[in-house]
């Protein structure tokens, strides 16, 4: 679903991403680990089409991203590190608006169902987003992914700044999406969460995907050792 081949991104002399090969299939959760500036966010942004690649190809659902900027976005949902919504509107209204932008038409009840499915407590649906916590806003993001019927989900450090309970809840939501056959690519610092939910794990350093493996191949302790080894 999310395929990058020999993907390279250069900013002048600086190589942000070097010969990245990645393939996230439907029902997989691919966690990208790495220090700040390792190229995780660059990868996500390339999939989003926010920036063009210098070399290599990148495709979503078989469509080259830069050539199908609009079409590829129909397949994906995106949750940035700090997902922000319109503060004057309620969660439901935000969802309604964003779903409209995604060309999806739903009744109010359907939208409420999405919010419920994303785990947003009922009394929050009509409240203005200005009063939401980060976790609540991310649930709206998940609800949007559901509403969009996204085939792929791109997440950029979604759990940073969440308390353990919210973080756990969020992980469970991702697992639910996995069951719906969504391809998930998540950049994160959180080894523990990665180990908990990933199907595949990749560790990046200075724009290079140094190592990638299946989750079941390692234990959490081994993961941490590999990680620290690579980073240092």
């Amino acid at each position: 679903m999310l395929i990058a081949k020999n993907l390279t991104k250069e900013y002048g002399n600086f190589t942000a991403l070097n010969q990245l090969n990645i393939n996230v299939e439907q029902g997989n959760i691919y966690c990208l680990l790495g220090a700040n500036g390792a190229g995780k966010s660059t990868t996500i942004n390339l999939f989003l089409g926010f920036i063009p690649a210098t070399k290599g190809t990148i495709s979503i659902n078989g469509l080259e991203v830069q050539e199908n900027l609009i079409k590829t976005k129909e397949y994906i949902a995106y949750i940035p590190e700090n997902l922000m919504l319109y503060p004057h509107l309620s969660g439901l209204e935000n969802l309604e608006y964003l779903a409209t932008l995604a060309q999806k038409k739903y009744t109010k009840n359907q939208l409420i169902d999405f919010l419920k499915e994303a785990g947003l407590q009922n009394d929050a649906h009509q409240k203005r987003v200005a009063q939401y916590s980060k976790g609540m806003r991310q649930k709206v993001g998940i609800a949007l992914a559901l509403a969009k019927d996204a085939k792929a989900l791109l997440l950029d450090e979604p759990t940073s700044g969440l308390d353990p309970q919210a973080s756990n809840e969020f992980s469970n939501l991702l697992l639910k999406l996995k069951q719906k056959n969504v391809a998930i690519l998540m950049a994160t610092h959180d080894l523990f969460r990665a180990k908990q939910i990933a199907t595949h794990i990749g560790i990046m350093k200075e724009g290079v995907l140094v190592k990638s493996f299946k989750n079941e191949e390692v234990t959490l302790q081994e993961l941490e050792n590999i990680y620290l080894e690579i980073i240092n």
Partner: peptide, 17 residues
């Protein structure tokens, strides 16, 4: 306010929007 990221991930043209 940070909502632009989400808008940009939508299948629409920002200029048209």
């Amino acid at each position: 306010q940070g909502t632009l990221l989400l808008i940009k991930s939508m299948p629409i043209r920002i200029n048209v929007w």
